[in-house]
Computed example of a mutant assay.
Amino acid sequence: MHLSPPVHPMLARPVTALPPAGAGPAVFEQKADGFRALVFAGAEPFLQSRRGSDLGPAFPELVEAAAVLGVEAVLDAELVVWGEDGLDFAALQERARRRGATARRAALERPAHLIVFDVLELAGAVLLDEPLRQRRAALEDLFAGRRLTAPWALCPQTSDRETALDWLDPVWGAAGIEGLVIKDPRSRYRPGERGWLKLRTRVTVEGIIGAVTGKVTAPRSLLLGRLDAAGRLRLAARSTPLSRRASGELGDVLRPAGAEHPWWGRTFSAGWGTKEPLAFHPVVPDLVAEVEADTAFDLGRHRHPVRYLRLRDDMDPEDVRQ
Rank of each mutant, 00 (worst) to 15 (best):
A58F: 07
L223D: 04
E290G: 05
L38N: 05
G173R: 05
D129P: 06
G273T: 08
H8Y: 01
G52V: 12
R50F: 06
A12Q: 11
H113A: 14
L55G: 07
T158W: 01
D88R: 06
S187E: 14
H302N: 11
D314C: 03
P285A: 13
P131E: 03
D298Q: 15
G145M: 01
L87A: 04
K215Q: 15
V126Y: 09
P131T: 07
V15M: 01
P317T: 02
A237H: 03
A257I: 02
P25D: 11
H8K: 15
S159P: 06
T16Y: 08
D294R: 02
S159A: 15
R312W: 07
A293P: 05
P305S: 10
A58L: 08
R13F: 15
G145R: 13
L38E: 00
L11V: 02
A41P: 02
K198F: 00
H113G: 12
T295V: 09
G207C: 02
V68E: 09
R13N: 11
H281S: 14
V39C: 11
R255E: 13
V253S: 09
F117Y: 14
L278E: 06
R188K: 08
G258Q: 12
R136I: 04
G145I: 00
E84I: 04
P57L: 12
V7M: 12
L122E: 00
R95A: 08
R146D: 03
A211Y: 05
R202S: 13
V212G: 05
H2R: 14
D294W: 05
F280T: 02
H8M: 10
G273M: 04
V39D: 06
T274V: 13
L222E: 05
F268Q: 08
G192W: 03
V284A: 14
R13C: 10
L250G: 04
A41S: 07
P156I: 00
D228T: 09
R50W: 05
D319C: 10
G24Q: 13
F143K: 08
R104A: 06
W172H: 13
S159H: 09
G176D: 09
E121P: 04
R146G: 03
F117C: 07
M315F: 06
T213K: 08
L62Y: 13
R105C: 07
D129E: 15
V216A: 10
E318G: 15
L69F: 03
E130V: 08
H8V: 08
G34L: 04
E44I: 04
W172Y: 14
G251M: 06
A77W: 07
S243Y: 11
A26P: 00
P170H: 12
R220E: 15
S269R: 13
E130I: 01
S239P: 08
E249A: 11
G86Q: 09
V212E: 12
A107G: 15
R202L: 15
R220L: 14
A125K: 15
M1G: 12
D319M: 14
G86S: 08
A236V: 09
R266G: 03
G24R: 10
S239N: 10
E162F: 13
E178T: 06
G207V: 03
R50I: 13
Q30V: 14
